[in-house]
Design a protein around this nucleic acid. Structure first.
Lengths: 141, 141
DNA sequence: ATATATGCAAACTCTTTGCATCGTT
DNA sequence: AACGATGCAAAGAGTTTGCATATAT
């Protein structure tokens, strides 16, 4: 996704299009490492050396509110961010503290179908989060 | 589970059986609310008024290391704890910040079977974490 | 007796907040 | 011009750490 597309996404969400927001969202879109706020700060500061940490947190909050990005929880105590909002699975290695995306529509369909047949009493499901904990092997390294 | 069972669990894991550990683990076993460290401190202090926060964190870490309890991530930035280590799903309402357990062996079997047939390239799955985000309806309230 | 656990307090990390200034619409 | 966004610094929450003392084995 290029900058024009990033600007469009911001604009259509009703957020003002500022250089800082473009930089934050671009960074996130270009990264597949699910960076935390600190990593985003470091990355964005290569371009905007004086962007404030508070601003980064504000922007990330804005983007989450608008559904443009998602928060990712980790075993550590740090929020990470993901620019992919389509359903997907996170492969997580605690040893490496590494998150990779794993797309498997078939599996999601399987679960969706299951939930439709056998609904949960007293709970309405809006979103499904699946995480596989484990270890990355050579092929993926 | 009574205190004797809690002591057994601690002992068989190799941890020294201290009153503080018994209190922390008992609290966790008796709660189904997936409490965070602060809530555990408050609960345990009804019995041991001078237990230190640092000690609670130490104990919780010990228990997690030994696989007696598990950490639970939430949308907020607080770690919560779960004494149930068997596979189960978490129903989570952000509005209420509430986590409920949902046991569904059939669904886990479904996923297990699926993973056995179609393994993920470059990743070995050790644990599956599933969370449904949504809203609790009247019946469950 | 020894190794480990606890209590306490200080330190640390990540995140949030208040407020003046700046920039987008 | 007006409202919202940014920068800065201080504060806050949750968690970790160091060290002396206490306790389980």
């Amino acid at each position: 996704m290029d900058n024009i597309e990033v600007r469009k996404r911001l604009k259509s969400s009703g957020l003002r299009v500022t250089p800082q927001r473009i930089a934050v969202l671009s960074t996130l879109v270009e990264s597949n490492a699910h960076p935390d706020a600190d990593q985003i700060v470091k990355s964005v500061r290569q371009q905007y050396s004086n962007i404030a940490i508070g601003t980064i947190y504000h922007i990330l909050d804005n983007l989450v509110q608008k559904g443009i990005i998602k928060k990712v929880q980790t075993e550590q105590n740090v929020v990470r961010y993901d620019a992919i909002v389509e359903p997907h699975i996170h492969l997580y290695s605690g040893e490496e503290n590494r998150i990779e995306d794993y797309f498997d529509e078939e599996l999601f369909d399987l679960i969706q179908d299951y939930l439709q047949k056998k609904e949960i009493k007293g709970f309405e499901v809006n979103d499904i989060r699946i995480k596989f904990l484990g270890e990355f092997t050579k092929e993926r390294k």
